[in-house]
Design a protein around this nucleic acid. Structure first.
Lengths: 222, 222
DNA sequence: CTATTATTCAAGTAATCTATTGAATAATAA
DNA sequence: TTATTATTCAATAGATTACTTGAATAATAG
């Protein structure tokens, strides 16, 4: 291969990879991907969840779609977006990891808004599995119900954060409670654990969110 | 946490992750990262390697540096850039993987420029390790010598592609030859294998390049 | 101290990206 | 058919990005 062919090859190749990076290069699109990692959503639901106008959310979703990071299906009058496949989440995970380890600002933002996270007594996947095996743990999925329906940890009960306070009598006081949500930057589990501990429960936060759990290779029920 | 605080938190957080994605969102910067995954390089060397003007390469490198994806050191009159740490390459790998699996254009570009790659008889890491253990394989690192010096596979000999033809008498004809280079889109090993097979050698291409080999957890010598 | 070399900076222009607005489209319900 | 709802399209303005050029800086050699 001649030198100018090599250059043309590299130019065309890296151009393609940059297409995907460009689709990721916007904070709103990253947030959309994080929500879609939970379950498919309509444009309107995504706009609501991320605080974007519908037209703007639609345009961002089309950018993600052009990069083949998401797919769509129409159901009646609504259009539902979803992650294109299981390769997309690990890419967001890798980006997240580099941000966490390289950008002091990430640590600073988390500390500013989520101070005292140590009080939540986070546990890992192994500790959870052991507790479940010993039947000492009640596992709560505190995400919205539709996300639970789309896939949840084995033995998890759906108790969306919004309903938790009203449904406290369902939750046994003699067991350890473990709550999980969307991922490390989701505050649903934080707030659930804080509420439970304030009411005298022995509560913990599960470190991985549902997509992280799935990416670890652990089973997910539907 | 109140709703407007949650929004401020998410806005600030995703803004940070998008900083990194923006640094990746340019084909030249991706190529620079791929070269830097081999070993540190001066600005001039990087500009030469990627076909950029020095001023332009310098500016791209500063973008990567602002995102903490690369670091620098000064040595005399030159400034050497390197990947910030071992977390950066897996991010590029994840991006590469999504591109390979989601973009038909990537497959098309590779097929256009690297037709008949099957004739190169690629082998994987396990097959190589077995061949080396049985002393049936001669392993060639056909990258430029400085990249070999910065780190290479155990038992590999440095025979830069440029020198291969002139140094054929060093290479025993009764062994299997395996050549590796920078990665799946580097053509050094392709051309080395083609040359060797044309001269009657029993030659193969190693699938992973050096950084991929390292990321697989296999040992690298310096 | 001066000249040289490698790199960065600053300014300018063209191209691309983002959010907003209001109109257009597509499926469904009345 | 007409009205309604969800989504997309098209046009626009402002912000950001990319590359070029020529000047400025920083380390070193003479």
């Amino acid at each position: 291969m001649k030198a100018h062919e090599k250059r043309a090859f590299k130019d065309q190749l890296y151009e393609q990879f940059a297409r995907i990076a460009k689709a990721l290069a916007n904070p709103h699109r990253l947030e959309l991907l994080e929500v879609l990692a939970q379950c498919e959503r309509s444009v309107e639901a995504l706009a609501q969840e991320t605080g974007l106008s519908v037209a703007n959310a639609s345009q961002h979703l089309q950018v993600l779609r052009a990069a083949h990071l998401v797919d769509v299906r129409r159901a009646g009058v609504s259009i539902y977006y979803r992650l294109a496949d299981e390769a997309v989440f690990p890419l967001w995970q890798a980006l997240r990891y580099v941000g966490e380890t390289h950008l002091a600002e990430v640590v600073h933002v988390v500390q500013t808004f989520l101070q005292d996270r140590e009080h939540l007594h986070s546990i890992g996947a192994e500790a959870l599995l052991q507790g479940l095996a010993e039947q000492q743990v009640i596992l709560l999925d505190v995400r919205p119900a539709e996300e639970y329906t789309a896939g949840h940890l084995p033995q998890a009960r759906s108790v969306p954060l919004e309903e938790l306070e009203a449904r406290l009598q369902e939750i046994p006081r003699d067991k350890e409670i473990v709550a999980y949500c969307r991922g490390p930057y989701c505050v649903f589990a934080d707030e659930a654990v804080a509420l439970l501990r304030a009411r005298g429960y022995h509560a913990h936060r599960l470190e991985p969110g549902l997509p992280d759990w799935r990416a670890l290779g652990f089973p997910v029920e539907v």
